[in-house]
Design a protein around this nucleic acid. Structure first.
Lengths: 146, 146
DNA sequence: GCTTGACCTCAAGTTAGCTTGAGGTTGCAC
DNA sequence: GTGCAACCTCAAGCTAACTTGAGGTCAAGC
């Protein structure tokens, strides 16, 4: 592994569009790891760019950092992930997207009924039920979500 | 207006599934308003059940309370909203859903390309751009979102 | 050898969306 | 007229996902 293949945190930040502080934060949370120079500065692998990309995409889908870490933990330990590894884990994201689209479609169908009668009634329209609220993107009142 | 048409906060909570504290919080934020008894207790209109329902649905779509207030402010002031009023504002929500579905479809298409090459590269796959990140559900790093 | 920008740590602050707790009051039923 | 559940206010706490600031170090160019 060439010395030039190790990136300081600022470079990684520039490559991903992330703030330096965000990358440090992710390392703290265990989403990414780094080597250290003798002077205690972080050095990252090139493949970490991809890792951060994955984090950004997954976040966009509404996954929390904890869930993202779970996904990332499916990558092979000890060696740099191959393209094949990334394909596998990306397909898992694709399922997430599919699920979200399906949920939105159901919500839309129910809302359409409600627009029909104008009621917006929890009882009649059943626009809420645990199933749907569970997969929701928004935070929502905790009491209801428990 | 009959005296019986005024609901104490606990009843409203039971009808909507919200916590009492959440309703008070929404009132504080100006999403809902109440009358007071001589003893300073809140009394709500029956139509507030619908108002809270709307808030819950909109939250499920990932709208923030501020955006929801903006929507709600389109309801007529001074009188209880009619079914027609609710239909109008609900259609606005429907558009939100449509937009979100469209965004997810675009994201999925891009991810599919990425799965194809396994790159997950920000440059090549263009899985990020401001347009998409803007409509995203998740929080995302603030620096990038600015 | 000195300056300067990039880097370090650790603590505290920020926003959203609520909940929890303390300490006190109301109102309905018996 | 008394008991007690339901209500009140206000302050503080909580989680997620970061940012900001203070105070200090490292490293490369002049």
């Amino acid at each position: 592994m060439d010395r030039n293949d190790l990136l300081p945190i600022g470079d990684l930040a520039r490559r991903t569009g992330l703030a330096v502080s965000a990358i440090r934060f992710y390392e703290d949370k265990g989403l990414i790891s780094s080597l250290r120079t003798s002077g205690n500065q972080r050095r990252f692998l090139r493949s970490d760019i991809r890792r951060l990309s994955f984090i950004l995409i997954a976040q966009k889908l509404g996954l929390g950092l904890v869930e993202i870490e779970t996904e990332l933990s499916k990558l092979p330990q000890g060696r740099t992930p191959t393209i094949n590894d990334w394909q596998k884990i990306s397909r898992s994201l694709r399922k997430e997207i599919d699920a979200r689209i399906a949920l939105l479609n159901r919500t839309r169908a129910k809302l359409d009924e409600c627009i029909g009668c104008g009621c917006l009634s929890l009882q009649r329209c059943q626009l809420y039920n645990r199933e749907d609220r569970a997969g929701a993107a928004g935070a929502g009142p905790r009491y209801v979500l428990d």
